[in-house]
Simulated assay, not measured.
Amino acid sequence: MGEILLNLLFVAGLWLAVEYCLKRETAQSLDDASLIPFADDPEVARRVELATGKVVKAVTPEEARPGYVNLDM
């Protein structure tokens, strides 16, 4: 009985913590956050825009300047 009560308290505490963390977020900010993984690849960003109709704020990859080399780490 005590273990069930502790589990219920844990679940309620977790739910309250998530609600507290997300209370200042708007639907627009959450939508923008869901598109962040596609922002660094312009081709994938274009396909996501075509599939969802949502605008992905894609960034273009940095080009290597003369005399410098971009290292992939």
Rank of each mutant, 00 (worst) to 15 (best):
K23Q: 10
F10V: 11
W15N: 02
A33R: 14
F38W: 02
D31G: 14
L9C: 07
W15D: 07
L35G: 00
E19N: 10
S29W: 06
V18S: 02
P42S: 11
S29A: 11
I36M: 15
F10H: 07
L8R: 15
D32G: 10
E43A: 15
F10L: 12
Y20T: 15
Y20F: 09
L14Q: 13
D41A: 10
P37D: 03
T26K: 02
T26C: 05
V18Q: 05
I36F: 05
D40E: 14
D40C: 03
W15Y: 09
C21R: 15
D40K: 14
L14D: 03
L9S: 04
E19R: 13
I36W: 03
C21V: 15
L22D: 01
Q28A: 11
A33G: 07
E25Y: 10
E19T: 03
E25A: 09
E25K: 11
A12G: 06
G13Y: 01
A33M: 11
E25S: 11
W15V: 14
L14M: 05
I36Q: 13
D32Y: 05
A12Y: 03
L30G: 00
K23E: 08
V18G: 00
D41E: 12
V11A: 14
D32Q: 13
A17S: 10
Y20M: 08
R24K: 08
A39Y: 07
Q28P: 11
L8N: 08
P37Q: 06
D40Q: 12
L8P: 02
A39R: 15
L16E: 08
L16D: 04
I36R: 15
T26L: 03
E25T: 01
A12F: 09
Q28D: 13
D31W: 02
C21L: 12
K23I: 14
T26M: 03
L35W: 14
L30H: 03
T26A: 00
L16M: 04
L8M: 15
P37R: 08
Q28I: 11
L8W: 07
R24G: 12
E19P: 00
V18D: 06
S34V: 05
Q28L: 13
D40L: 11
L8S: 11
I36C: 04
P37V: 00
D40M: 06
L30V: 05
L22H: 04
V11L: 15
L9Q: 14
G13Q: 04
P42G: 02
Y20V: 07
C21S: 12
F10I: 12
L30N: 02
P37G: 08
A33W: 05
A33S: 14
S34F: 04
L14F: 12
K23A: 00
V18N: 04
L30F: 03
E43D: 14
